[in-house]
Write a protein that binds this DNA or RNA. Structure first.
Lengths: 220, 220
DNA sequence: GGGTTTCCACCTAGGTGATAAATT
DNA sequence: AATTTATCACCTAGGTGGAAACCC
């Protein structure tokens, strides 16, 4: 279900903005890829969003899930530098709802601060027990953000509201098409690799300026 | 006020255990010192405690504060390797209540997990705006742990219950005398320095085995 | 001189893509 | 042949005490 939904009139007034849209756009133009590993890999770029129109004293939970865009499997044609459809999708793993670790938020907090899903991790391990989001490699996905407005009597487990299915709550879903990506176990498009290296601080060690050739090393 | 207090019969049944008492005892025997800096320094050892006798479905907040043990100022006599009273205490900074960042906890969580105050930081900067605990150097202090039972209608600011004064709440205070220490800007007792180096993983670089003498370096 | 601050080398902890080996 | 896994060097981020400089 890619279409944004909302089952609560008060949430119709809420707006969600993708804070780092420019960066996502640059990846999207090339065809974003996200690495998935057995132990879980962070997404880069991170989904960072801000909310307006929320009620000051209400309490909210922000969640992310990632759903298949189509029922296709893809492969990368190196000689053509493009993605091709390789067949029908594998059986999808059950979609996991990832609750933002700082949730719940008051409306006041949501108005001030950016909600960053930097800790979200992606895995290809269907047996994963760490709560990471399980995806199939070589399949195309769409992240979604859900904002749930908590009822005052909401049942808590410590800080963590028990949200099993957003359908049962007052919620609204936001979808940013520029955050679509293909899950991979190794990067396919070299331009994506380069953009990741140039924009992710943790990959700084692979940037051109910091990688000396043997000759450069010798000349020092 | 060093004496443990409790204003709530249900909390009388609660017990609090200092999980790393053995380590604290080793420091206490030598006279624990804690570094304070302008930007804030973690405590080592950390106060790690577990609670039993809490109600499964109730919600609790754990807090720490650090209060003066006496109205004295101390100095360290190197030639005697001991602490001496150096006069009357300086004017104390207002005691700051440090709420555990993971609070609130359900009783269920408290029964299972250890509450670790590892992120608590100490500072000598009276103007500190980071929420660190402000202490006077060369003064003796006693950390205290407060367990507050939240009323169901408790007013929240996001995850963070607004606790201005434990006196207004249902609370119980726990005091472990072995966690007393003298605040310092530089270690005085060399035995304390050695025990810190040997027991704090972050100080591993100063352990004997990893510190080579010039001779050892030469012989490699 | 006693106490404090600053800067540093050396750690812990964990996020990167490259690479080669393993798998299918 | 295509894809996945394990390991690695190289980062970010930040917690240590040492040592010298700096106060007062």
């Amino acid at each position: 279900m890619l279409k944004p939904k909302c089952n609560c009139p008060e949430l119709e007034r809420v707006d969600c903005r993708l804070e780092n849209k420019e960066l996502w756009d640059r990846f999207h133009e090339l065809g974003t890829e996200m690495i998935i590993t057995k132990t879980g890999r962070r997404m880069f770029p991170t989904v960072r969003c801000s909310f307006s129109g929320v009620e000051l004293d209400a309490r909210y939970v922000a969640l992310m899930d990632i759903v298949p865009v189509d029922v296709k499997r893809y492969r990368y044609a190196y000689h053509r530098s493009s993605w091709l459809v390789a067949g029908k999708a594998d059986a999808p793993a059950p979609v996991r709802l990832y609750m933002h670790p700082d949730a719940p938020f008051t409306g006041e907090q949501l108005r001030k601060q950016v909600v960053s899903f930097e800790k979200t991790k992606l895995t290809n391990n269907e047996m994963d027990k760490s709560g990471h989001i399980v995806l199939n490699s070589m399949h195309k996905y769409q992240p979604r953000i859900h904002l749930v407005k908590l009822r005052p009597d909401y049942h808590y487990n410590g800080n963590t509201p028990v949200i099993n299915n957003v359908e049962y709550q007052q919620f609204r879903t936001f979808v940013f098409p520029e955050t679509q990506f293909i899950a991979v176990t190794a990067y396919q498009n070299q331009l994506i690799t380069k953009l990741k290296i140039d924009s992710n601080p943790f990959a700084k060690g692979f940037r051109d300026s910091s990688r000396l050739t043997d000759l450069e090393r010798y000349e020092m």
